[in-house]
Amino acid sequence: MEITFREALNQAIVEEMERDDSVFIVGEEVAHYQGAYKVTQGLLQKFGPQRVIDAPISESGFTGLSVGAAMVGLRPIVEVMTFNFSLVAFDQIINNAAKMRHMSGGQLKVPMVIRGPNGPAHQLAATHSQALESMYAHVPGLKVVVPGTPKDGKGLLKSAIRDDNPVIFMESEIMYGLKGDVPEGEYTIPLGKADVKKQGKDATVVAYGKTVNLAFSAADLLAKENIDLEIVDPMTIKPLDEEPILKSVRKTNRCVVVSEAWPFASVASEIGYRVSSKAFDYLDAPVELVTAEDVPMPYNKNLEHNALPTLEKVVAAVKKVLYL
């Protein structure tokens, strides 16, 4: 069944809310407006205002409220209109959600999902165009999931809602309308497991979220030059399932990591480090990173395009590790 990323996420939420009455969703415009990006379309009509709750623009308040509700047994889904706004709730996420279990010596758990679009969309400029997964992945106690397809989005979101830990679930404005095959009926995809999206033999491209599609575009282009890319999608950034990445690099001996986040102390640099350290003897070239430029996002369309990973940059990086 081919559906959009948005519909896949909607199905995941509906199925989990039907399955477990401790699940509720709260966020700005999630109920009456049917979701700023329509991921929550129809939920209010189906589950009522007790479980589908419009929040005031008060991210620290309703995120913290949800942490409290999770501490005593509910399973909140917090929709942030975009992850840019989650920064307003950073203290609640990092000091409360992530650390509660540790600080209480295991007396408490915080089963909640904080989800919404992450990363740049179209010309939204610096405050509304940032990929923040590296910041969240930095914090022990959080899980971070960045799905790249409708199928993965649905299966991973269902697992995230059932998970007993706080899960940062990062989507993308640009991906909401993308279509893909989703299995009929009930399925979940486990957190913390990577997926080899495409088998290949010449070089490994590690990509996640929106950049999975970019990796496929690069693979298509390079196939014309008889370069066969393997694409590994970690899907869960934290905990990172490194073995499939290392296994792939041991096979191809070359590695490019593609991410829309900034390069400094990032998911890409972490993966690059692990590959360099743990597959050192297998590498025929240094690992290449294709990331956002280390700049706040400019508004101008051309500047924006060039501040991000592009097809040209990915192709160039692959050729570099192949010494072509």
């Binding site: 620290s60 308040g61 913290g64 409220l65 409290g68 509700a69 501490m71 005593v72 509910l74």
Partner: peptide
Amino acid sequence: GGQIPLGTGIAFK
């Protein structure tokens, strides 16, 4: 002040 939303959330539950 970090615990104030938490207590509010406990009341929500």
